[in-house]
């Protein structure tokens, strides 16, 4: 794999790897991972303190993927950063593969926690943040979550605890794409005003366009430095980069025909990912 030099190039590669990995696996989740590719690209290239050659370095920043079904974006990002060979991606969801259909904790590969049943990662991340403070360690804990996941009561239990223990060393990134498996979040179970609800729980909330790399970068920097538990609500488009998947909850699950897969690959490979265009998304 040629070494990408910027988060924009990374995002393109991550999307390409997602489509190729899902096509080989024959199942998995597409909408969320494609929508979150920019968040992962910026976090891992520009913000995260990590060393893929020392994955268990105790001072590394932790990344928890609480919405575990979006793991293709995590796996693609980790492969891109050489946590494991790219070939492992092609084994996704196969018998005896390391890369499971939902993440299985394997720190040596950069997979910090197991997840899938929603809500659990946020609690684990708060526990990791509390532990880091107790141990006087300076690393930061990043926790990815989704809007649909915020229908789980456990998430709000974790918010209460995070505020009580003042986890200023933790940032939650919410993939706010208004979709979940059976439809639009605001029809299935309304979440808005999500920002106000989370603020009321004692967390500082930032809202950004989740495809704007500069905005992502600045929000991550601010959230880390603000001295408070923080949440970044990233407004994203599910399936971003593949026109026929964009905005469609029916592509929560991947089910592309070979022809559709070819089209998806062509689209993500030719995606005009200049920063300028992304700013005007």
């Amino acid at each position: 794999m040629s070494a990408p030099v910027s988060s924009v190039a990374d995002a393109q590669q991550i999307r390409e790897l997602i489509v190729r990995m899902l096509q080989r696996a024959g199942s998995g989740h597409a909408g969320g991972p494609l929508g979150m590719a920019d968040l992962f690209a910026v976090l891992y290239r520009q913000v995260l303190q990590h060393n893929p050659h020392r994955p268990q370095w105790e001072h590394r920043d932790r990344v928890v993927l609480s919405n575990g079904h979006t793991c293709p974006v995590l796996y693609a990002t980790l492969a891109l950063h050489d946590y494991f060979p790219e070939e492992e991606l092609w084994q996704l969801r196969r018998l005896h593969a390391e890369l499971q259909g939902h993440p299985h904790q394997k720190e040596a590969w950069g997979i910090e926690t197991s997840s899938g049943p929603l809500g659990q990662g946020v609690s684990q991340a708060v526990g990791m943040a509390v532990a880091a403070k107790f141990l006087h360690r300076k690393h930061h804990i990043y926790c990815f979550s989704s809007d649909g996941e915020h229908q789980e009561g456990q998430v709000w239990e974790a918010y209460l605890a995070g505020a009580k223990y003042a986890v200023d060393n933790m940032t939650i990134l919410i993939d706010r794409n208004y979709t979940q498996i059976s439809g639009v979040t605001e029809q299935v179970m309304p979440l808005d005003p999500l920002k106000d609800k989370i603020s009321a729980f004692g967390w500082r909330v930032y809202e950004i366009n989740g495809h704007d790399h500069e905005a992502i970068f600045h929000a991550l920097q601010e959230a880390k430095a603000d001295g408070e538990p923080s949440v970044i609500i990233a407004y994203t488009e599910p399936g971003h980069g593949v026109s026929f998947m964009e905005g469609k909850f029916s592509w929560h699950d991947y089910h592309a025909s070979p022809a559709e897969a070819r089209r998806a690959l062509n689209e993500v490979q030719s995606l005009d990912n200049t920063l300028e265009n992304l700013h005007h998304d």
Binding site: G119, Q120, S123, Q124, A125, G127, A131, G153
Partner: peptide, 18 residues
Amino acid sequence: VGVAEQNMIGMAAGMAKE
């Protein structure tokens, strides 16, 4: 953690991991 058993187990898991 208050009356929030699910979060209690989740936080404990995060602590044990560390």
